[in-house]
Design a binder for these strands. Structure first.
Length: 414
DNA sequence: TCATATT
């Protein structure tokens, strides 16, 4: 019944004119009213919506602003982005257009299947029938050669829509046997997802996609364009997102837990079948803190998943917000091997105590690891133990650097 | 090289 109140009260929020901004670095304790009051000093703001955890309903440290116009939104961005640090935040406010807003506002179209010799002027002739063109560019390569596609912005959405409907799949340029493709340009988010996917497939060329759990580790699957036509380079996006390749290889991503690795004698024979692995993975401290590995090959038995609570809680920790441990129990780790994800990091460090969370940072655009991350334990003793055992430990090409995480907001000045 | 989060 309380749910019933979730009616859309503000018709203003559906206004085409209104602009949504995303705001980061918002202290979790701030209320929507407080934020509204603050932002109103700089621009007209109709609404503030704090982004909350789906389950706990706790603030996730960011919010959306609804501004009545682009002009007002720009005022808020210019006045606040990177300019103010709210009490309790560690870095300045991040204020930017919410995902997809810019694209929505710009009425940007993608045009594909252009003959390479078509000029801007010719394109302009064709598209100006539908409205005022604000921007038009043919994508070109190094020698100024056309890539056979273009981006185009109209003054209004209606104009863009009219052009899309009229030309997409219907209009053939002179001398071309295939019709043009016209679609709404991808949003920044879609582009990032695509880039990440590409980077992933290059970074892990031997991905064994038969392992179902691997899917969860990869970026969202590629969603085909709504119009079903190709985009830029047809074939660049197969409908099967990950190429299936032959070749057997132990699952790199999940079973790298110390106890799954046998003594070096085994490693030798393992390498040739693991082209993705360029170097030995050794867990110096890890091995000793578990019961001694049996020297029999049985140690390799896949009777794994002592799916211990450490691992599973780490997984849940990394899937939601970051769980932080008590003071002194959180580690910063640098020089993590490139191919390590959250899970591998957790596995590597679980030998020293109860891992609350483990996070490897990745480049937002490419999905590539930045080779640093965090591990949180439930006790400072575990963290110290991990530092002693793992700091300076050669893992991959480099030596791990394991330190206590620097903690900005710990002081309680009374 | 120290938590960037999109209802």
């Amino acid at each position: 019944m309380a749910e019933g109140e979730k009616e859309k009260k503000s018709s203003s929020s559906n206004n085409e004119e209104s602009v949504k901004l995303f705001v980061g670095q918002v202290p979790k304790h701030m209320t929507e009213d407080e934020l509204l009051a603050m932002f109103k000093e700089f621009a007209l703001v109709d609404e503030v919506n704090i982004i909350k955890d789906k389950i706990t309903r706790a603030s996730r440290g960011c919010c959306f602003l609804l501004c009545p116009s682009r002009q007002e939104a720009d005022k808020a961005v210019n006045a606040c982005h990177n300019k103010k640090t709210l009490p309790g935040a560690s870095s300045p406010l991040q204020v930017k257009y919410a995902d997809g807003e810019l694209e929505r506002l710009e009425h940007k179209l993608f045009v594909g299947m252009l003959p390479k010799n078509v000029s801007e002027a010719e394109l302009s002739d064709l598209f100006s029938k539908y409205g005022i063109i604000k921007d038009l560019q043919i994508l070109r390569g190094s020698q100024q050669t056309s890539k056979g596609c273009a981006f185009l912005k109209y003054e209004t959405k209606e104009q863009a829509h009219a052009a899309l409907e009229d030309i997409n799949g219907k209009h053939k340029m002179e001398g071309s046997s295939v019709p043009l493709v016209v679609k709404w340009a991808d949003t920044e988010k879609e582009r990032q997802a695509r880039r990440a996917q590409k980077a992933q497939s290059q970074a892990m060329p031997n991905t064994d996609s038969q392992h179902p759990s691997l899917f969860g580790a990869l970026p969202m699957g590629y969603a085909p364009p709504y119009n079903g036509y190709g985009y830029q380079a047809p074939g660049a996006y197969e409908l099967v997102p990950y190429r299936l390749r032959g070749g057997i290889r132990p699952d790199l991503s999940l079973n790298i837990s110390p106890r799954n690795y046998a003594p070096a004698s085994y490693m030798g024979s393992a390498y040739p079948t693991m082209p993705g692995l360029q170097y030995p993975i050794v867990y110096p401290g890890a091995i000793m803190s578990h019961r001694p590995l049996s020297s029999s090959p049985g140690a390799l038995s896949p009777t794994v998943p002592s799916c211990n609570s450490a691992t599973s809680s780490a997984a849940s920790g990394s899937s939601g917000g970051q769980v932080e441990g008590p003071p002194g129990a959180n580690l910063f780790i640098y020089h993590i091997p490139q191919e390590f994800g959250d899970q591998e990091l957790a596995n590597t460090f679980q030998a020293f105590g109860q891992v609350l969370s483990a996070k490897v940072f990745v480049d937002k655009a490419t999905g590539v690891s930045k080779c640093f991350g965090f591990v949180s334990y439930d006790s400072p003793a575990a963290a110290q133990n991990a530092i002693t055992m793992m700091n300076g430990c050669q893992l991959g090409g480099k030596k791990l650097k394991v330190q206590l995480k620097k903690d900005n907001k710990q002081s309680k000045p009374y």
